[in-house]
């Protein structure tokens, strides 16, 4: 039973991180039908931003949890600026071009960002300080649910609730849904579609930044390739849930996280990726539009 719970919370933690990244893919796809291949790099840049903030503030003697809070805020702001700028220079000029052009541009952006961080930092793994530490009240349960896992799960849950409320109940959230469903009509009603697209990139980048800082605390090391690997997994989660669907991305991420955790725990850890992508193939065979995705309709 304890082993089961350990795997359960392990899966929930993985799923949380996947969800934070997958939302960026799915929201951008929902609005402009682009797979933003550079999205994983934003997550990686978030982790590096966290590392720099942690380095500076640790030297100044701040307590770990305060540093974590500041690192999250700085990473969110910094990555938002990256996401916003990326859309303006790499995707906006290609709007209206054929579908392949922005895709190529996204791949180019991904390669550029990785190499840019490579030059600014180093290709090696860098140690990341454990800003979360071990909570005393969790001591008895630490073998099932580590403190870092707990923080990841709680912060992700809070972010998901906030995002859902925003999308469902605010004026801009409604405008985002309307724009995703029919861009021309949203424009006719006076929605500034450029602003909606920018906002989508900012939200997606913010969530990825949170994921980047949190996972770095958990694994204790980062390098420039973490964005690529996590990005592919999160993209898988988005497709699994139905790309374009926000609840779908959350569900797909959890399903993927649990599958990996239980399959590696009960079967073998050598084939983690085989289980993940095997699941993807299975779902795409039986539900081509993903768990919560809409069957493709023609867009006008």
């Amino acid at each position: 039973m304890e082993y089961f719970l350990e795997l359960f919370f392990g899966g929930l933690t993985r799923g949380s991180i996947y969800a934070l990244i997958a939302l960026g893919y799915t929201m951008v796809y929902g609005i402009i039908e682009l797979i933003n291949f550079a999205h994983g790099e934003i997550y990686m840049i978030g982790a590096f931003t966290g590392l720099i903030v942690a380095g500076v503030l640790t030297a100044m003697g701040f307590p770990a949890l305060a540093i974590l809070a500041v690192a999250l805020v700085v990473a969110v702001v910094y990555c938002s600026a990256y996401g916003y700028t990326m859309e303006k220079i790499a995707y906006k000029p290609l709007r209206g071009a054929n579908r392949l052009s922005p895709l190529i541009s996204a791949i180019g952006m991904s390669i550029f960002l990785q190499n840019y961080v490579l030059l600014a930092q180093t290709p090696n793994f860098l140690p990341f300080p454990n800003l979360i530490g071990e909570f005393e009240f969790m001591e008895d349960y630490a073998h099932i649910l580590g403190s870092a896992n707990l923080v990841i799960i709680l912060v992700t849950a809070a972010a998901m609730v906030a995002l859902t409320l925003f999308i469902k109940y605010t004026r801009m959230g409604r405008a985002m849904r309307a724009t995703a469903q029919n861009r021309k009509m949203a424009m006719l009603l006076g929605v500034n579609v450029d602003a909606v697209i920018s906002l989508t990139f900012i939200i997606g980048s913010s969530l990825a930044a949170i994921g980047g800082v949190l996972i770095a605390c958990h694994t204790g090391q980062i390098n420039i390739t973490i964005g690529f690997i996590a990005g592919i997994k999160a993209f898988t989660a988005a497709v699994l849930g139905g790309v374009g669907s926000i609840p779908g991305a959350m569900l797909g991420a959890l399903v993927l996280g649990f599958t990996e955790s239980f399959a590696t725990g009960y079967i073998s850890s050598d084939y983690e990726d085989v289980f993940a992508f095997g699941l993807l193939v299975l779902i795409l065979i039986f539900r081509p539009s993903g768990l919560l995705g809409k069957a493709p309709t023609q867009k006008v």
Partner: peptide, 17 residues
């Protein structure tokens, strides 16, 4: 060009955007 996934009231609110 009704927004198919928005409720009737949400569609109307979009008109008052």
């Amino acid at each position: 060009l009704i927004f198919p996934e928005l409720t009737v009231i949400e569609n109307l609110n979009m008109g008052a955007f």
